[in-house]
Amino acid sequence: MTTGLSYAGIQAATHDAISGRRVRYRLYPATTGVPAVGISVVSGAGAWGNVADIVVAGALAADFWVCGFQLNSLAGGAVQIMEILISSTGPAAGNPGPVTVPFLLEARFDLTLVTPEFTPIMLPYPVFKVGGSRVAYCAGGAAARSLAVTMIYALGL
């Protein structure tokens, strides 16, 4: 249930969030015991690549909070420097970026053979999305490289 924007509601939501009440973190795409590789996207060579959906519209029915991301290098640790944009609007999947809309996250990653492990990338504050929202991203890089992204989201804040 979405907490209404009443003073009491904001107080309650803030209290719940900071005190951790009812927070539940999940990965998306959902996994069933096999570590999720995530949604694959290919960066353009010196440009933005095509947009990919992490969460298609309607896939998460309840309100949720985008809390972070986990990355998986599909290139087997090959050197790659990428920049990703994550948004909930913009071009449909399969169409070229950039996503000229407000971003949820813009981040730069410098991945090399000696840094193959990725810890979760947590946002300092969760980003609230109403139920049914889409989450999409695109990547850019000096060369065409593959990266997979899994989203960490929270329910129940």
């Binding site: 539940r24 973190y25 990965l27 986990q70 640790g77 840094t115 193959p116 492990e117 899994t150 960490i152």
Partner: peptide
């Protein structure tokens, strides 16, 4: 489920 994470570890890390 309270939380879940993907953890990727290699021999050198």
């Amino acid at each position: 489920v309270l939380c879940e994470h993907r953890v990727e570890l290699a021999a050198i890390t």
